[in-house]
Design a protein around this nucleic acid. Structure first.
Lengths: 201, 201
DNA sequence: GCAAATTAATGATTTATTCAAG
DNA sequence: CTTGAATAAATCATTAATTTGC
C-alpha cells in the first residue's frame, strides 16, 4: 500500500516550522474523524462497500473533506480497521457462542460510549468464502497513468452529488451482502449508492 | 491500493514472431525491475535499511528511475516483500535446522518434513536472543548485470551520488545489524550510505 | 529452434496483529 | 478502552524460467 500521508489539516494545526518533510516530525498526531465523517463512512460501509478500491477511496475522501481535513490514507485505514474489527468481533462472538452457549448473551453490549455499536449478531456464520477476497478486481485497477511525473490535473469537481458514483468492481462483498454487519440496524443509513452498476436509481 | 504504475514498456516485449510494427502498449501489469534496479535495492537492503521511511523511499525511487520507470509504491512493495520473504526463509531454515540435525534422538515431532529448497546456508546457527539468525538470499537470477546487456554504466555517478544520502530515523534494524541476511556474501555491495548520521567516514 | 505447457519468482492485495494517541 | 496508524503474514496473480513435444 502506498499510504500517502497527506494528513496535516487535523485539529492541532500548524506547528509552525515544518514545511513538508516529516523527517523530524515531532508530533505524530492522528486523524480524528468528525461525527459527520464517521456517519458517512459507516453508511458506506454498511451499504455493503466494505473495501472500496482506490478510485472510490479518493471520491470518499473528497466527500469527507467537506467536513474536515482528511487524507486518502485515512479513509483507507478506516475501512481496513473497520473490516478487521468487525470480523474480529464477529469471530469472538461466535467463539463465545460455540464455547459457552450459556454466557453468550451476556457479553454483548456494554460499550461505554454509545457511539459505536456492533449490531446484534444474527448473521449466519458466513464462513468466509474460500476465494478470500478475490472477487473484485477483474483486471488491473490502474486506469490510466501516463507518466510518473506528477501533474495529473483532476477535474476539480466540487459537487458532492456526483461523487457518489462508483465504477464497477467495487469492494462489495462478493455475495449478496457484506458479511460484516449484515444486520446493522441502528446505523443511520445514508444510502451511498454505488452508481451505474447495480441499483441504477 | 493506490500504486500508480509508471511502468513503461518493458525491455523485451516482442520477439521474432511479431511482425507487428506498432507497439500496442499492452496492459501495464506489474513492474518488472531492471537488473540494475534490483542491484540497488538489494544493496540498500543489505546495507541495513530494511524499511525505509517514506522520504527515503522517494529518494530511492528517484535513483531507480535512472534505470527505468518505477513508482514509489513499487519501492515500498519491494521492501515489504523483501522483508517478509527474508524472514520467512529464515524461519524455515531455522525450523529445518532444529528438526534435522538429529540432535535429540527423540524425534516424534516431525515438523515440516518437506524441506524446501533453501540455498546452502553458511551462517552460524546463532541462537541469539533477538537478532537471531542470518539468512542468505536466493541466488537470484539477477546479479548478472554489469557484463553485457545493459549499457547503463552504473559507476558513472554524476548526479546519482547525492541521492545516496539518508536522513536519520531510518528503517534500520534496531539492533546492530539487520537481522535479515546477516551473511549475504556474494551480493555486490554498493554501499548505500545512510548519510550524515552515523558512520561518517 | 520454437512455442505451448509447467514451474518458480516475485510484484501487488488483503488480512491479522501490534502499537500508541486520545 | 477505543481506534487511527503501521507493519508483518498470508494470499493472490502475473511475469520469467524451465521443460517438453514437435
Amino acid at each position: 500500500m502506498d499510504i500517502e500521508q497527506t494528513q496535516d489539516g487535523k485539529s492541532s494545526p500548524n506547528s509552525g516550522s515544518n514545511p513538508d518533510h516529516a523527517v523530524v516530525e515531532p508530533v505524530r498526531s492522528r486523524w480524528t474523524p468528525k461525527p459527520e465523517q464517521v456517519l458517512i463512512l459507516e453508511s458506506i460501509f454498511n451499504s455493503g462497500m466494505v473495501n472500496p478500491p482506490k478510485e472510490e477511496t479518493v471520491r470518499i475522501r473528497k466527500l469527507l473533506e467537506k467536513f474536515g481535513a482528511v487524507a486518502d490514507a485515512n479513509v483507507f485505514y478506516w475501512f481496513q480497521n473497520r473490516r478487521s474489527r468487525s470480523r474480529r468481533r464477529q469471530r469472538q462472538l461466535q467463539a463465545g457462542l460455540a464455547a459457552d452457549p450459556g454466557a453468550a448473551a451476556a457479553a454483548s453490549c456494554h460499550f461505554g460510549t454509545a457511539v459505536l455499536k456492533e449490531p446484534p449478531s444474527s448473521c449466519s456464520t458466513v464462513t468466509s468464502p474460500s476465494s478470500s477476497t478475490g472477487g473484485f478486481f477483474p483486471s488491473s485497477s490502474y486506469a490510466s497513468s501516463c507518466s510518473s511525473s506528477s501533474n495529473a490535473s483532476f477535474a476539480g469537481d466540487d459537487s458532492v452529488g456526483d461523487l457518489f458514483t462508483i465504477s464497477r468492481h467495487m469492494g462489495f462483498a462478493k455475495s449478496t451482502q457484506n458479511p460484516f454487519e449484515c444486520c446493522s440496524s441502528d446505523a443511520p443509513q445514508l444510502q451511498y449508492q454505488p452508481g451505474d452498476c447495480f441499483s441504477s436509481s
